[in-house]
Write a protein that binds this DNA or RNA. Structure first.
Ligand SMILES: [Mn+2]
Ligand SMILES: [Mn+2]
Ligand SMILES: [Zn+2]
Ligand SMILES: [Zn+2]
Lengths: 142, 142
DNA sequence: TTGGTTTTGATAGTCATTTTCAATAAAACA
DNA sequence: TGTTTTATTGAAAATGACTATCAAAACCAA
């Protein structure tokens, strides 16, 4: 599946006339090796420790490309930092966010997704994406 | 209901040992006179036009207090500005956000709220609040 | 290899928000 | 009431995440 993701990006780059660069390859490898919801700064630190000559701006730029290519999703929680997570084709999930330890639990709920579509239809609204975040205390912290 | 909200803040201030100040009274009056989802800067401009000697930092600080007191809710959309809306006791709603004209439609859905509670229970999670935002094109923009 | 074009890294800039701190005002006290 | 204590304020500086700039480097089609 890592190969599949690399192909997604290669295809995207091709279709956009983007060049293949050492930096993008390395950043993609490292991003794919991570789990959970990583901030740009966190990813930059990983990248820097593997390849110190890659700059922060490049990490910002490249993560945006990954999101555009459809292999990453931007997550904005309430900590002032943009995070990215992997996108698995055809899957969607939402988040339970612990406000104490910042841990995140992912969940999927078909019924909620359906109800969202109904609501949007009722308002003549065309959904592009959505975000459902439940904040509170996780099992460990409550 | 404006009086009720003022009382909410008075009680909160009392319980927190906060002092009653001219600035807080004025900012509360002006906030209560607004509708929709107002940004701090927008509210600050209103405040300044009524009372030019009130500073921006005070507006920031005071809106946070309103949120803490439970009479305002912070809204973070994707435009880089924090917005606040009125909280009506016992009511909750979520948002359809048009990514083209930035208009917001509010909606309520009991079933979604119930499902959220079930999901949280299933994960031993204690909900403090939640946020459901549906992004897309509104009826006018699609 | 070359030459036009994209990408990069360092750095400066932006912008919303927060912090600092001395002056001021509110409550507590005498 | 005046006095003391303490919170609050406004202006300005600081912060911090992100973006723009731009000259140098890398890419790649020919
Ligand atoms: Mn996730
Ligand atoms: Mn609303
Ligand atoms: Zn927790
Ligand atoms: Zn619209």
């Amino acid at each position: 599946m890592i190969l599949a993701k690399k192909k997604i990006f290669t295809d995207f780059a091709l279709s956009k006339g983007l060049r293949s660069t050492r930096q993008r390859d390395i950043i993609l490898d490292i991003f794919l090796s991570t789990h959970q919801h990583i901030s740009v700064e966190e990813l930059y630190l990983k990248v820097k420790s593997s390849t110190p000559d890659i700059g922060q701006a490049t990490v910002y730029r490249t993560l945006k490309l990954f999101a555009e290519a459809g292999l990453a999703r931007e997550i904005l929680l309430h900590d002032g930092q943009t995070r990215y997570e992997h996108v698995v084709a055809g899957e969607h999930h939402d988040h339970l966010v612990c406000t104490k330890c910042n841990s995140i639990v992912e969940f999927e709920n078909e019924t909620i997704e359906m109800l969202q579509n109904e609501i949007a239809d009722r308002h003549g609204f065309q959904i592009r994406n959505h975000k459902l975040e439940i904040y509170g205390l996780c099992a460990n912290c409550r």
